[in-house]
C-alpha cells in the first residue's frame, strides 16, 4: 500500500468537520433553545427536511440563495410554532408529537419537493480563507460557507443571551420550574411556543444548508438522520450552546472520517468508520442517561426528567 499522507487526512477532517458539521450546529442550537424552555422537539428531523426543500424551491424560483435560506427558516418556524401550540394543549406528549412531526415534515417535503429534484438552484456563497495558499486542496478545505460563521456568531450570542439577558433568564426559569415562572407572572406555554418556533427556524436554516450548499441539491434522500442526531448532540453538549459548537464539529468530523481514511488508503474496517457518528450517539446516550446519574445541566421541566 502507498504511503499515507497525514497532512491531507487532517485537512480533510478539518474541512469535513466544518462542511458536515454546520447543519448539526444549526439543528442542535435550535434544539438547545427548545429544550432550555422545557420541551423536546424530536420533529426537528422533519423540519430539517422541509427547510431543505423549501429553501431549495424558493432559491430556485427567486434565483436568490439567501431568500431560500429565509424561506427555509420561516417554514421551520411555522412547523416549530405548530409543535409549540399543539404541545401547549393539556395531556399532549411532546415526544410523541415530535415523531408525528417527523413523518408530517418529510411527507410534506417529498410531496411539494417533487418538482424541484431536477432544476438547479443557486448555491450559497462561501468565504475563501485559503486564498493565501497555492495548494488547491488547502483552498478547497478553507472555503467555508457563510452560514457556518453565522452559526458560530449565533452560538456566542446564545451563550451570552441565555446567561446575561432577561429573556434568557425567563426561558431558563420556564424550562427549570414552570410553577415559579407562573408565580412570577410569566406564561410558560407562550415562552415555550416561542422557543420551539425559534428552534424550528434554526433547524430550517440547517436544512437549507444541506440543499443549498453541501451537498447542494434537493433530493429525497438528502437527510440521513441529522435532525435526530442533533437531539442526542444537545444532551452530549449538556444544553450549553458553546458545547453544541464543539459537538457539531466532532460529529461532522466523525462523518467525514470514513471517506477521508479510504481516500488516503486506510480502507480496512470502513463499515466501522461509517457507523462512527451513530456509535458516538449511542455512547453519548449511555454515558449521559444512566438511571443512577442525574443529568447535570438538564432543564428540570424536560419530560425525560419528570
Amino acid at each position: 500500500m502507498a504511503e499515507i499522507d497525514y497532512s491531507v487526512l487532517l485537512l480533510a477532517l478539518l474541512a469535513g468537520a466544518i462542511r458536515v458539521g454546520t447543519p448539526f450546529l444549526f439543528v442542535s442550537l435550535g434544539e438547545c433553545l427548545t429544550e432550555k424552555g422545557g420541551r423536546i422537539n424530536l420533529g426537528l428531523e422533519g423540519i430539517l427536511v422541509v427547510g431543505a426543500m423549501s429553501g431549495y424551491a424558493v432559491a430556485y424560483l427567486t434565483d436568490s440563495a439567501w431568500l431560500g435560506v429565509l424561506a427555509a427558516g420561516c417554514a421551520g418556524c411555522a412547523l416549530g410554532a405548530f409543535h409549540g401550540v399543539i404541545c401547549s394543549l393539556p395531556r399532549v406528549n411532546d415526544i410523541a408529537f415530535g415523531i408525528a412531526l417527523i413523518l408530517l415534515g418529510t411527507g410534506l417535503a417529498f410531496f411539494f419537493g417533487k418538482a424541484f429534484i431536477q432544476p438547479q438552484a443557486p448555491s450559497l456563497p462561501s468565504i475563501e480563507l485559503g486564498a493565501w495558499s497555492d495548494d488547491a486542496r488547502v483552498r478547497s478545505a478553507l472555503s467555508v460557507n457563510v452560514l457556518f460563521f453565522i452559526g458560530v456568531a449565533l452560538t456566542l450570542l446564545m451563550h451570552w443571551g441565555l446567561r446575561a439577558t432577561r429573556w434568557g433568564l425567563v426561558l431558563r426559569l420556564v424550562g427549570d420550574h414552570a410553577q415559579s415562572a407562573r408565580a412570577l407572572g410569566y406564561r410558560p406555554a407562550l415562552v415555550r411556543t416561542l422557543a420551539t418556533a425559534s428552534g424550528g427556524f434554526l433547524a430550517g436554516v440547517g436544512g437549507a444548508y444541506l440543499s443549498l450548499y453541501y451537498p447542494g441539491s434537493w433530493n429525497e434522500g438528502l437527510s440521513s438522520g441529522q435532525g435526530l442526531m442533533a437531539v442526542a448532540l444537545v444532551i452530549f453538549a449538556r444544553w450549553q450552546p458553546l458545547n453544541c459548537l464543539w459537538a457539531a464539529l466532532l460529529f461532522g468530523a466523525s462523518g467525514a472520517v470514513g471517506p477521508a481514511l479510504q481516500a488516503v488508503g486506510i480502507s480496512s474496517g470502513y463499515y466501522l468508520f461509517a457507523a462512527m457518528p451513530y456509535a458516538l450517539t449511542l455512547l453519548v446516550m449511555y454515558l449521559s442517561c444512566r438511571p443512577n446519574q442525574t443529568l447535570s445541566g438538564a432543564p428540570g421541566e424536560l419530560s425525560l426528567n419528570r
Partner: peptide, 20 residues
Amino acid sequence: TVIFTGDWSLPVKEAEAANS
C-alpha cells in the same frame, strides 16, 4: 482509488467522498 459509502443513497457522504 475506491471509497465505499455504505449505502445506496447518502448524499453528504458521497460529497465528502468526492472531495476526499
